[in-house]
Design a binder for these strands. Structure first.
Lengths: 211, 211
DNA sequence: ACCAATCTGGTAGTGACTACCGCTCCGGTA
DNA sequence: TACCGGAGCGGTAGTCACTACCAGATTGGT
C-alpha cells in the first residue's frame, strides 16, 4: 500500500478533526471547560461521542492538539552548533513563533491567530489543561535535547543541555502567558526575546528586541 | 474558637494523612499508578474510600501533597534584593533543597529522603503526575514573583521577574529529574547549582558547585 | 463486482470524583 | 458529671471521562 494511502480519506479525516476541535474550543470558551461534556462537543460537531474519542485520545487533547513542537526541534537541529546553547535554542523559538503568527502582528489578527489565542487562554485558565500544556513543554525539552546533542547517551553529558532547554522553554511559556494576557496585541517573537533577555541577560539574543 | 482547635484532633488527622499517603506511594510504586485504584489505597490504609477523598482532593494529590513551596517563597522574601534576580532565586532554591535533604547525602539515605525519591520517581514516570507537578511549579513561580516584587501590579513590570523565576524553576526541575535518575546519590543542592550554572553561566551561583 | 481496510456508531463497563445524608467520638461547658 | 456542638468517618447514588468489544457503512484497489 502507498504511504499516502488515500488523499480523500485523509482529507475527510482532517476535516472532521478540525470541525470537532473548533466546536470544542468554542464551547469550552463559552461555557467553561469543566461545564462542557464530551457529549456536548460531539452533538455540536454533529458526530457521536465515540468519534470524538477516535480523533482525540482525551478531552484535553481537544484543546492541546498541535504539532508545532516538531518544527522547533527541526529548526534547532538545522542551526549552527557554534553559538552558545541558550542563544541557539532561543533563536529557534523566536523564529518558530514568527512563522506561526505571521499574520498582522497587532491590529489585524488573522483567524488562525485568534484560534491560537483562544486555545492558549483555555490552557492558561484551566488547571488540567495548563498542567498538560506544561507537560508538552517537558516533552519538547527532550526533543530539543535530542536535536542538539546528536548522540550522547551519558546522563551527565545531557544534563546541562536539559537545563538550558528547560530554562528557555520556561521563558517561552512566560512569553505565551503574557501574549494571551495582552490578547495578542504585542508581537509574540518580541515577547519571547524579552523573556529570554530577562532570564539570561540582554546579550544572549542575537538581535535585540525592538522595544 | 482557638485557631489551634485541638492538638489531639490535628494530630490524629495528620497521622491518618501520613498513613494514607505512605500506603498510596507504596502501592503506586509496587503496582503502578494507573493500576492502583483509590479503593485499593483505602483498603491498604484501613479506611474507607470516602476518607481518602476527605484528606486528598484528587488521586494525584496522594503523591504530590507537600508544602515545600511556601518555604522557598519565604526564603526569597527574606533575601537581599541587592543581588541579581536569578542569583537571588537560585540560592533560595539551593538552600531550600539543602534543608529538605539534610540527611546523609549519598550512602545513608534517611527515610524521609527515600520517601521523597519514591514520590519523585512516580511524578516523573507517570504522565498525569508529571503534568500536575509541573503545574505546581507554575504556581510556585507566581508565589516567587509575589515574594520578589513586593507590590507591583503592572503586568509589564512583573514580566521579567516571571521569566527569571520560570527559568530558575525549570533548572530546579531538571536537577530533580537527575537526582531521581541517580537515586539520590548526588547531593541535590549541588545538582541544582550545576543546572543553574548550565542555564545561566558559571558566574551566577554565589558559591561554585564543588564538582 | 469483490474484498480489505477504514470510519463510524452502540453497549456495557470501570474508575475518579461529588453531592447528600447519617453515625460516632472528641472537647469544652453548665 | 451530664450535655451539646462540631469535626471526622462511612454509605449511597449519581455524573462523567474513558475503554474494550462488536456491528454496519463507506471507500480504494483488484
Amino acid at each position: 500500500m502507498p504511504d499516502q494511502h488515500s488523499t480523500l480519506r485523509a482529507q475527510r479525516r482532517a476535516d472532521t478533526q478540525r470541525t470537532i476541535q473548533a466546536h470544542a474550543v468554542r464551547l469550552f470558551t463559552e461555557r467553561g471547560y469543566d461545564a462542557t461534556t464530551v457529549t456536548d462537543v460531539a452533538e455540536a460537531a454533529g458526530v457521536s461521542p465515540m468519534t470524538v474519542y477516535r480523533h482525540f485520545p482525551t478531552k484535553e487533547d481537544l484543546v492541546l492538539a498541535d504539532r508545532n513542537g516538531r518544527l522547533v526541534a527541526e529548526r534547532i537541529a538545522a542551526s549552527s552548533a557554534a553559538q552558545p546553547l541558550v542563544r541557539r535554542i532561543g533563536t529557534a523559538l523566536i523564529d518558530s513563533a514568527a512563522t506561526l503568527t505571521d499574520g498582522g502582528p497587532g491590529s489585524d489578527p488573522t483567524a488562525n491567530e485568534r484560534f491560537l489565542l483562544a486555545r492558549l487562554r483555555l490552557m492558561i485558565s484551566t488547571p488540567a489543561l495548563r498542567a498538560r500544556h506544561l507537560d508538552n513543554h517537558y516533552a519538547l525539552q527532550q526533543a530539543i535535547v535530542d536535536a542538539v546533542g546528536g548522540d550522547t547517551t551519558d546522563p551527565d553529558a545531557v544534563f546541562p543541555t536539559r537545563a538550558a532547554a528547560g530554562a528557555c522553554l520556561a521563558a517561552l511559556h512566560t512569553a505565551l502567558v503574557r501574549w494571551a494576557e495582552d490578547d495578542g496585541r504585542t508581537a509574540l517573537p518580541d515577547l519571547i526575546a524579552k523573556a529570554l533577555a530577562a532570564a539570561f541577560g540582554d546579550d544572549i539574543t542575537g538581535t535585540r528586541p525592538n522595544t
